[in-house]
């Protein structure tokens, strides 16, 4: 059976990729197929990769404080491209208020620093929309 596929990307200009890299490897350990696309991704890059790789989940890591802008943009493009069966999750430095707003906008989950890999993995397994 095909594995759940997750795209991990860092949008914007922030180069702090420790979290994204550790997450990519740890999700592999949890049995997922992770497509790692690295730093300095535009929303267009991310959506294109998500489509071509036919992923089930898009995970964005943002530590630059620019999360509102980047999530909004990715959500817009997801809608435009009909990726409504793809989960959008995120991690990084995101204050509570913003987290609430992002969830309202349609982001499925925001994980703060210190979230365990197991928790993220469980969330994905329980919420992935596609029927495998």
């Amino acid at each position: 059976m095909r594995k759940i596929r997750i795209l991990i990307a860092k949008p914007g200009l922030d180069g702090h990729d420790r979290g994204a890299k550790v997450l990519a490897r740890s999700l592999m350990d949890e049995g997922f197929e992770v497509i790692y696309t690295g730093i300095h991704q535009t929303a267009e890059d991310i959506i294109r990769s998500a489509i071509e790789e036919d992923v089930d989940v898009i995970g964005l890591s943002i530590l630059s404080g620019a999360h509102m802008y980047h999530f909004r943009r990715v959500l817009e493009l997801m809608k435009e491209n009909g990726l409504d069966d793809v989960l959008l999750i995120g991690g990084g430095i995101v204050p509570e208020d913003d987290k609430k707003k992002l969830i309202e906008m349609g982001v499925n989950a925001i994980f703060n620093p210190g979230t365990s890999i197991k928790e993220i993995s469980e969330f994905i397994k329980n919420n992935v929309r596609r029927i495998k």
Binding site: G12, L13, D14, S64, G65, A66, M68, Y69, H70, R73
Partner: peptide, 10 residues
């Protein structure tokens, strides 16, 4: 345009 969303944030 590459800087959109990042101004003054960090």
């Amino acid at each position: 345009p590459l800087t959109r969303g990042e101004f003054g944030k960090a």
